[in-house]
Design a protein around this nucleic acid. Structure first.
Lengths: 263, 263
DNA sequence: CAGTGGTCTAGACCACACT
DNA sequence: GTGTGGTCTAGACCACTGA
């Protein structure tokens, strides 16, 4: 069959086309590959394909969605660009996972000034139940007063304390989190979250400022009180842009810096 | 002509294929579209297409390079993703430019806490000739002792001083820069650099730390001495990954923050 | 209207990984 | 060898812009 107008209407899904023109101010025309992408993201969110596992091959998906392989490919291209999937030539396409050593500290932008790689070690300090205040509720899109879990931890690079994190998590997902689950794990937090709670962190937003070290930060990071610290507030999102973590980190930047590339 | 082995050898450029297999440890196989991209980047660097101007249409380029339109498209796709080009449906593909109001402060990540947009105004303070010390020379890939231009400027948001920048530029490009060229310009620095010196800033790397305000920063940013400030060191690159600017900015982050998205 | 980029398809072949 | 993703082509049609 040559490409013809018919091929469009023989699609199993008959995806919405902008034929009903000028619907609204924002008609939100969506090309086929983007609709396929949405279906696949939904499948990911629903857990149809587990983190680390291979998804079906491009040709299988093409059959399943009733489109050509090229269209599936474009959908996967975008998802790979967003770090939702990882392509491996000759092997297949895999669901990205924080269990993959290559992305253990994917969101950590702190780098030693001398560039030498160092072993990162997470030292959990405390884990308590609390209620969300106004600010937390707004960020996590829950109600003020809702139960949350507050986790404190220290991140060390080859022994030196460098990052003090306060991590706030909604209890409806992370309510059963305990210090013990983190104490003897040499994996990253997100790796544990993914395995134990089935929540995959997809993307994050960080807001940075400079602040003075308070008493607690000063003692834990082993710097004089008042030392300028980098305050990094992070909101982390899972599938469907749902915020599932609010993190406030204090970075000691005497021998480390926050690295960022601007494109 | 159906796609056949012949179509490969009828290419005008007969681009290098990895047929001579296993050349070295890093054979650096380069697909056609990437070779096309390299040719186009070189054309951009050589000034064949000026910033803001339209490049030839995809089909013209396909003829010129002796490849299919789809291959040119893939090359342009990558360049658009790197902000080298801007596609505009129905109009053409254009060379990205800092003169475009949409990218006036493309590399400035500072955002007001309340989210309200503010008018940014650059106030040049000084401009002097100097010699590169060891550190500057290393970053700008020039020789220690080479001539540089040092520019100081204050960035205000609706009147409030927020960023104090010290900007170091190689004199072989920017030797003729004067305060007057900046004094009465309401455009961004990079916009001036592009128009006056023909240097387009492509990408940048930033390294952030927290430091205490020294006397000068304190007086210009109108904060007490010792106030924690965000120190942002930026190296900016033009075509061919050539570093052409080293900038050291001190950001007052009482009502503003540095925003970063992690993908 | 013609010209541009944007989408979609179908098919061929290449590179890579496993068995 | 078989199956996967990766590249390249050719052609059709859609959507947008501006004359």
């Amino acid at each position: 069959m040559k490409s013809s107008p018919m091929s469009r209407s023989t699609l199993k899904k008959t995806p919405l086309r902008p034929s009903s023109r000028q619907a609204l101010v924002a008609p939100a025309f969506s090309p086929l590959y983007r609709q396929i992408k949405e279906l696949m993201v939904r499948a990911l969110g629903a857990g149809e394909w587990a983190p680390g596992a291979a998804i079906p091959s491009e040709s299988e998906l093409a059959v399943r969605f009733g489109v050509s392989q090229g269209t599936v490919r474009k959908a996967i291209d975008e998802m790979a660009a967003e770090n939702l999937l990882v392509r491996r030539q000759g092997k297949g396409t895999f669901v990205a996972s924080h269990n993959d050593p290559r992305s253990f500290y994917r969101f950590l932008r702190l780098t030693p000034d001398d560039g030498k790689v160092r072993q990162a070690r997470s030292e959990p300090l405390g884990c308590r139940a609390d209620e969300a205040d106004e600010a937390v509720a707004r960020v996590l899109q829950i109600q003020a007063g809702d139960a949350v879990v507050v986790l404190e931890r220290l991140l060390r690079f080859s022994g030196d304390p460098v990052v003090l994190d306060e991590i706030i998590l909604p209890a409806d997902i992370f309510g059963t989190l305990t210090l013990d689950m983190l104490k003897h794990s040499d994996r990253s937090l997100y790796s544990v979250f993914e395995s134990q709670f089935g929540v995959r962190m997809i993307r994050a937003e960080e807001r940075l400022r400079a602040v003075a070290a308070d008493a607690r930060a000063s003692s834990l990071l082993e710097v004089p009180e008042g030392t300028p610290l980098l305050l990094v507030e992070r909101v982390t999102y899972t599938y469907g842009d749902r915020p599932v973590e609010w993190r406030r980190g204090r970075y000691a930047t005497a021998q480390y810096h926050y690295f960022n590339e601007l494109g």
